[in-house]
Simulated scan of single mutants.
Amino acid sequence: MPGEFFNQHSVDEGALFGFHSMNAFTGMTSLESMHFHDIEKNADVVNDLKLYKEHLKKLFLN
């Protein structure tokens, strides 16, 4: 979103880039993620918990 802290880049492309590069060096690959910043800014707790449970099922049970 224009005017946001990381200039329209995710924290993965900015502050966490070095961390992810280090993990890639060891052979790790990225998993789909759900950042808490999205929940914090536009909270809908009931729906967010539902989406989080679906996210976990998708990652670990499929």
Score class of each variant (00 low, 15 high):
Met1Thr: 07
Pro2His: 01
Phe6Ser: 05
Asn7Asp: 04
Gln8Asp: 08
His9Ala: 14
His9Leu: 15
Ser10Phe: 14
Ser10Gly: 11
Val11His: 07
Asp12Val: 01
Asp12Leu: 02
Asp12Pro: 06
Asp12Ser: 06
Glu13Trp: 01
Gly14Val: 03
Ala15Lys: 02
Leu16Gly: 00
Leu16Asn: 06
Phe17Met: 03
Gly18Ile: 07
Phe19Arg: 01
His20Asn: 15
His20Ala: 04
Ser21Arg: 13
Ser21Cys: 06
Met22Ile: 03
Met22Pro: 00
Asn23Phe: 04
Asn23Trp: 03
Ala24Trp: 12
Ala24His: 12
Phe25Tyr: 11
Phe25Cys: 02
Thr26Arg: 15
Gly27Glu: 01
Met28Ile: 07
Met28Asp: 09
Met28Val: 11
Met28Gln: 15
Ser30Lys: 03
Ser30Pro: 00
Ser30Asn: 09
Leu31Cys: 02
Glu32Ile: 02
Glu32Thr: 05
Ser33Thr: 10
Ser33Gly: 13
Ser33Gln: 03
Met34Ala: 15
His35Tyr: 00
Phe36Ala: 13
Phe36Val: 14
His37Met: 12
His37Trp: 08
His37Leu: 13
Asp38Glu: 09
Glu40Asn: 09
Lys41Arg: 15
Asn42Tyr: 11
Asn42Glu: 08
Asn42Pro: 05
Ala43Cys: 08
Ala43Tyr: 15
Ala43Phe: 12
Ala43Gln: 07
Ala43Asp: 14
Ala43Ser: 15
Asp44Val: 12
Asp44Tyr: 09
Val45Gly: 14
Val46Lys: 09
Val46Glu: 15
Val46Tyr: 14
Val46Gln: 11
Asn47Met: 06
Asn47Val: 12
Asn47Asp: 10
Asp48Pro: 03
Asp48Phe: 08
Leu49Phe: 14
Leu49Thr: 08
Lys50Glu: 11
Lys50Leu: 12
Leu51Ser: 12
Leu51Ile: 03
Tyr52Arg: 07
Tyr52Asp: 11
Tyr52Ser: 13
Lys53Met: 10
Glu54Asp: 10
His55Gln: 08
His55Met: 07
Leu56Cys: 15
Leu56Trp: 13
Lys57Gln: 15
Lys58Trp: 08
Leu59Trp: 02
Leu59Asn: 03
Phe60Ile: 12
Leu61Asn: 04
